[in-house]
Design a protein around this nucleic acid. Sequence first.
DNA 1: ATGCCTATGCGACATAGA
Length: 255
Amino acid sequence: MKIATFNINGIGARLPRLLEWLAAAQPDVACLQEIKCQNGNFPVPALEEAGYHVLVHGQKGFNGVAILSKAPAVEIRVGLPGDDSDEQSRYLEAEIDGVRIASIYLPNGNPQPGPKFDYKLAWMARLDAHARELWKLERPVVLCGDYNVIPTDEDVYSVRAMQDDALMQPESRAAFRRLVNAGWTDAIRSRFPSGPMYTFWDYQAGAWQRDAGFRIDHLLLSPAAADRLLNAGIDRHVRGQEKASDHVPVWVELR
DNA sequence: ATGCCTATGCGACATAGA
């Protein structure tokens, strides 16, 4: 079972690239982030024609997450619990082939300090609380998405260039560590323990050409899922295509 | 110190991203 996460940065601009990647990579499940459209404008027919069931949690203009699956999916949760006043579409959870899977678009948090950074940290605390509930299921769970956290200095092309960014503030990293250290497996670091494993390259200043990237898209596996881990990888080549997203797909294969 | 680029929207620039 191949499960992927892909921040597509706008479905309107990315549909051709997404369809090409689905056809080539053949994921059983694809968790998407930043679809940037309302539910009614998501191209469900084109994706169904490509062989996928579709769950969408959209929003006009910004944010928005979706889950595509070859097998039928049961929608478990729309939106992250813990704050009824939160109207941003950043969390969608489904049960697919006996695996609980979440598509996560964690707030960026810039500029910091400020209200956006406060929202990021509050959102991470809510995610941590919900992850602990999922943990209690003692079943295969995959929490995947754009976490907007650079976990360590090894995950960024330049610590100095990014030192004031919300993505690698000590508070952001501590919150991510608190989540992972509860017992989740960071799939990419499990497979590739060291070295740069970037998942994002900015559109600006030739970041892709000079490999000025960082690792912010993650798949966290519960013990029952980690026991089934066969392989993990990053589809770097996607970033070099015309009209590419600034993120690339990251995936795991479970037995 | 800032912009660099890209996507979206009741567009003709502003906002958000990271």
